[in-house]
């Protein structure tokens, strides 16, 4: 069977790959959006924190024998705690200065983290065993079981985060503080603590994405910096600080990337940046962003 002159199997295969990439874009841009919303910080360490999640999962397995499912809970917590220490120790002092300082600081932290990991484990990647070998027959195509699980984990986590932000009291604090943190603090809410927890949560999501990525890609020091530039483009397209926008743009752009690979492979690595340029020209606040 062919669709637009393309074998259907190839089309479905690339779309599935696109969805897997999209699952990571969505998780990462969601964390960036939450952090940007409250801290007004462009967290350049996000890619390194994603890489750290994968390494923590690898270390848990290699040194403690804790497998993927345990790491899926533990590694994000470790990354979140490191993030909170970073917020407490360094980022907090940059609250009242231009956001470029926070961007530069987190960029520096990213380089240091990458360097430290490369120094210890080398630049070449290390494999992480697939916890769910085998494939599933979806009727129209066969799909590796684990890749399906990665998409499902990302979808469930994104949905849960969205519900937590839009439907709970803590989420209401977060939304309100993203608009006017001083006002919420004047009501008696401990905003410095909310900021620390929010940063921890955002980078914890990056750590989670890293764990989920470990069996798909190699665990390597540069895995984050390779991905994060694309993720920033996704965030710009979705709209800085927009929760739903980051998730929808993440999956959507993953799919578009996959489609491009089928129809015009040469453009597949740049298509997202073309879209970003168009968005910046015609809708600078992003597809789902509010002007602020």
């Amino acid at each position: 069977m062919e669709i637009f002159g393309i074998p259907a199997q190839a089309l479905y295969g690339q779309l599935a790959l696109g969805l897997v990439n999209g699952a990571f874009y969505a998780l990462l841009s969601l964390g960036l959006a939450i952090i940007f919303g409250l801290l007004n910080l462009i967290n350049f360490a996000h890619g390194a924190q994603y890489m750290l999640g994968a390494y923590v999962a690898w270390m848990l397995l290699s040194y403690l024998g804790i497998g993927f499912w345990g790491a899926l809970i533990l590694a994000p917590l470790v990354v979140a705690m490191l993030g909170m220490a970073l917020e407490r120790g360094l980022l907090r002092h940059l609250r009242d200065v231009d956001q470029i300082y926070g961007l530069l600081l987190t960029f520096g932290v990213a380089l240091i983290l990458e360097g430290l990991v490369a120094q210890t484990y080398g630049w070449s990647g290390m494999p992480y065993p697939n916890p769910l070998p085998g494939s599933v027959d979806l009727g129209f195509m066969r799909m590796p079981m684990y890749r399906l699980a990665a998409i499902a984990i990302s979808l469930v986590v994104c949905l849960a985060v969205w519900i937590a932000i839009e439907r709970t009291k803590l989420g209401a604090y977060l939304r309100a503080a993203s608009e006017d943190a001083d006002m919420v603090q004047a009501f008696g809410v401990n905003i410095p603590r909310l900021i620390m927890l929010t940063y921890g949560f955002g980078v914890g999501l990056a750590g989670l994405a890293g764990v989920v990525a470990a069996p798909v890609y190699q665990v390597s020091p540069a895995m984050g910096s390779n991905l994060i530039i694309v993720v920033f483009a996704v965030v710009v397209i979705g709209g800085m600080g927009s929760i739903a926008g980051s998730v929808i743009a993440g999956f959507g752009l993953g799919l578009i990337e996959g489609l491009t690979k089928v129809f015009y492979p040469a453009a597949s690595t740049t298509v997202i940046f073309f879209i970003m340029i168009l968005i910046l020209i015609f809708r600078p606040s992003g597809l789902f962003g509010s002007t602020r």
Binding site: D182, Q185, A186, F187, G188, V189, N190, I191, P192
Partner: peptide, 11 residues
């Protein structure tokens, strides 16, 4: 800090 002032009973 202002959240502690609020918690003294001032709104």
């Amino acid at each position: 800090p202002s959240h502690q002032i609020a918690r003294m009973g001032i709104a």
